[in-house]
Design a protein around this nucleic acid. Structure first.
Lengths: 193, 193, 193, 193
DNA sequence: AAATAAGCGAGACGGTACGTCGAGTCTTCAA
DNA sequence: TTGAAGACTCGACGTACCGTCTCGCTTATTT
């Protein structure tokens, strides 16, 4: 509770203007061409207003692009493969959104370059996905559908890596079958291990 | 078009000095911190000597880091899963090499940002992997081990994306079991589709 | 126009804290390095408390550094040269004081840059000196020591300019003979004109 | 003889464009309002081209404004007062020139703020004046017109300080009599010491 | 006593200049 | 023509200060 009781409070309109200018510029110009100067100009804001809130471009873009709280749990479809399919659909929706698909490669590259940010890839960006993945596997175990000792993190990296590579890097169009295929591959692969 | 018959021929030592300076700098400082100016200084070379050969940082790094021709075919182990395991081992060796692991995220991000380069991800960087993957699947089909209609590109993206995410982005240590696990997941996932 | 009868009256301790912080910073860091932000921080005061009283850095420094009312008249020594020597001694004391010597060049430069402030150089900063100079010349005239038509302003500029240049700009040490030399030069120069 | 045999030589047109933009901006806007950014823009030049040649605003302005080599010796008028009058006329011409009069206060203030530059006021800016002053006094001594042991530096500070204060700070118009008055004051003041 | 009106520290705000650095191009001399 | 050196324009970086503007709070005068 650091409070911040003193001084003029930060203006939420400034905050919003920065974030929406960031998203707009990413979509228009791409992550590489996005600059703090450019965001400030587009938002009609001083550079300090940005640096006061974020320590740099990666943090700014991260907050601007990944605001989809999306805390909804995965509904129970009765089968593991069904549940994972829905989970992958959500992941694809998140990663294939216009700003996200453009921002992800550069954003992840910048995160990977800084040790302080690197750990946030799994802990922040994928935290929600991981939590839901664990829950889905727990349900499957309760159902007796699954053996124990599931390599959750490998599966997480597989799902995220595949979607990222497919959507962000290669730029392949997302077909409706992708989630089902990917879910099937992962789930049957695990089960028959 | 005999290209260049006139004038002083290019010095191969200059070429080599640039490439090795590039690799050294990537390992030392990371992809993001690598600059053409820095490479030139470290190689004891003028900037033009670099721009004369490569059109920019991504192309330079691509050539410097991914020179492992590695055209060796995958030996026939008798089973698809065995073949794919070896293929993944090779992929991991390639992506987890010191310079490659550091360079990959930024390099792919820069490739993804430029439409002209984006297609080269699958066509150049993964060309060898794809060719061997096709060959391995052909062998499995000949063996009667596999149904037809294999989604090669999805599998390719899965393998490359998983390894990239695991090794380059998350920075997780590579365990010896990873190739086997990943191969098992993909192969059984495909077979029981 | 009773000006301000309502509201909380200004705190004289705030006033004093600002002025002494200003003097301290000038001595420590010089006029150029003095900032309003820095004064506010050192005085433990908000910026507005400063802007409420002074319109900018030159005015603030002017008040902080030149508060020596020094309205004492020049004692009658019996000779013009004696009187002027005392006058120059006072001028040197004023201009060579630690804060003043450091502040003068920058302060006068800022005053000169703004037409609104430029006239205050002679009218405020040198007002006392000029008044005493006139008085001293009047005494000399009464004594019959001097011809009429003395170019007071030229003499004023000479005295002030010489001391400023010597002490503030060149940074030469003030020798005890300086006032006498300077007075002699000016007075005999005028008399034998 | 540092030579500089390697690399592309500096472009003299760039040099000239920077200097003339500097002079133009000083006359238009004053020393305080002159910025490196502004000079670069007006000269159609990158900022680095300026920082490559000068270490900051004071050095740049110094070179831009005080290029009048003016190495002409003072003609021998036969009397000390005549010689000094001419010397002061030259000094007034130099200090009252449009760009110089505007630049001097700020320029000298900046020089005075930096110990490294402070010594250059007498040694560079006034070097020519001082040399000619010494010569003029030598001639007077040879003529038998003057006693020995002249406080040259005090006289130098008097002349320069008076002109600076009159012209640069107070902004008083320069009357044609000023040089004669000032010379008379100084010379008779010295002689009858 | 309540209402009104400033003063006050804190700090956010849009601007703007700073001095540095890298991009990619161009220009010199020498090989 | 290559090559090392380095000047060139351009533009982003992250920092700092400008002078203005809210905040919550305090301290006085006026009703």
């Amino acid at each position: 509770m650091p409070a911040r009781t003193h001084g003029r409070p930060r203006d939420s309109r400034t905050h919003a203007a920065i974030l929406s200018a960031t998203v707009a510029l990413i979509v228009d110009a791409g992550y590489g061409a996005l600059t703090i100067v450019g965001v400030a100009a587009r938002a009609g804001v001083g550079k300090d207003a940005i640096y006061r809130r974020w320590s740099g471009k990666p943090e700014l873009v991260y907050e601007a692009v990944f605001t989809s709280a999306d805390a909804d749990p995965i509904p129970d479809t009765g089968t593991l493969i069904g549940d994972v399919t829905i989970l992958v659909e959500r992941l694809v929706d998140e990663f294939a959104a216009p700003a996200a698909a453009v921002a992800l490669p550069g954003l992840l590259a910048d995160f990977a370059d800084q040790p302080a940010l690197r750990m946030r890839i799994r802990e922040d960006l994928l935290a929600g996905v991981k939590a839901r993945l664990v829950e889905v596997f727990d349900r499957a175990a309760a159902r007796g559908e699954l053996v124990a000792d599931v390599p959750v993190e490998l599966i997480l990296d597989s799902l995220a890596g595949t979607v990222l590579f497919h959507v962000g890097l290669v730029g392949a169009p997302v077909t409706p079958e992708l989630p089902r295929h990917l879910a099937a591959m992962v789930v049957t692969g695990i089960k028959t291990r």
